[in-house]
Design a protein around this nucleic acid. Sequence first.
RNA 1: CGGGGUGUAGCGUAGCCCGGUAUCGCGCCUGCUUUGGGAGCAGGAGGUCGUCAGUUCGAAUCUGGCCACCCCGACCA
Length: 491
Amino acid sequence: MAKNTTRAEDYSKWYNDLVNRAGLAENSGVRGCMVIKPYGFAIWEKIQAQLDIMFKETGHQNAYFPLFIPKSLFEAEEKNAEGFAKECAVVTHYRLKTDPTDKTKLIVDPEAKLEEELIVRPTSEAIIWNTYKGWIQSYRDLPLLINQWANVVRWEMRTRLFLRTSEFLWQEGHTAHATKAEAIAEAEQMLEVYTEFAENWMSMPVIRGKKTESERFAGADDTYCIEAMMQDGKALQAGTSHFLGQNFAKAFDVKFADKDGKLEHVWATSWGVSTRLMGALIMTHSDDEGLVLPPKLAPIQVVIVPIYKSAEELELVSVKANELVKKLKSMGISVKFDDDDNRRPGWKFAEYETKGVPVRVALGPRDLAEGKAEIVRRDTKEKSTVEFEGIENLIAQLMIDIQENLFNRANQFRADNIQKVDSYDVFKEKIEKEGGFYLVHWDGTAETEALIKTETQATIRCIPLDSVEEDGKCMVTGKPSKHRVVIAKAY
RNA sequence: CGGGGUGUAGCGUAGCCCGGUAUCGCGCCUGCUUUGGGAGCAGGAGGUCGUCAGUUCGAAUCUGGCCACCCCGACCA
């Protein structure tokens, strides 16, 4: 078997190989678009299912809006349109016909040109706000709390599986509110939902913050984000929540009558996470052997591998294994008993390690004779032989322990790779050699931000929400600064 | 969109410079032996060499066009 690419050798190749090897996704015949394979999609479904619950718990409802946006609607909110214009797929025709010069080929029928081009949504604010116009008349219609699970298209120049693909799956929440304060509270609430999901379900610590003006979502007054550190020290924006002010309400003329009968533009938010979370999950926990999944998002939480030499032995082992399967299932733990006779145990061990199954149980005649079983946890690779009786309770506890351990490990890694720096020269040297996150003082100007980006390729990831006020000087210009910002190279 | 590169079996490749009908590994199929860390042996199947044209008795190999993909930049969830 070919040796795996290790993280130390080539982090980028390690990632790509792993996505392929674990059966998560592959490149497709369409440029920049991926095929999400069953195992990868199963993880995405777990992510989706939990987020959906959390959105509903916070009062949101799901709906679905069209894939296409007429150009005239798309251009209504200027900044938004301008921001996405360079990466839009555009539908110009609605029919093909047989090529008169080659009957086996099709050509676009020039007579089927659309009067108005349709934009394949890169994000849905435009079509949704055009719709909201008809839904909102009174303060009684507010707040309007909608989420949509959808695919969007952004014609990226360079793509990477899960991290950046031309088409990707995501959810986008779009809410309308009567007051500015309420809309801001909503944007902040959803950032908390994302944070809770990232930390408690993905076991991935995140920094909550606000984007600088130049990194803000096109059309937003404020963009909140969660930023995570990957194992190569680079930052990954894992989710964003935008306070859109009245920009879209004004662009689409969405007004409501308040209690006094006065007409006001409504206040808006939008927030989203995408299949990029898959990339975040992979790059936060996985190792050189393969995927490492937090139990809460693992499609298979426990795998049981039988060891046997004959059909009779398999029969005996199966009886025990099935007992355990039944117990685990009743406890809500997903389990697979892999009695495939075409693969030998060693192959299965390697396979489930590659796939990141949190716990593996091996059961053979030797164990049966002693009333024991071998149990291995994926996160630490720790192997132990335990009493078969009551093993289900041990496994249930392992689910909790592994979930926690992954978070703690990632948290420790981040703590080890985040540092305060006050000198630009030191920063330049460190970001180049060590990577990681830096907490620095910045004068708040776009010029300084741009300079840092040009000279170091690092960007201001966010202004952390929990940053403490302290008097400092911008590391570049020496101008006064009130708090530190997080700066790093990013995906 | 600028710069560089690559297209040979399901995957990874050799051959190309110096033209003579394609190499090896993995995978796949069959059989036997195996099964506590990616099994061994034996046999077998699988290829319009990205595509179109040109040169030639003859093209994976030489020439030109086209297409696709990858890497590095600018852009980005």
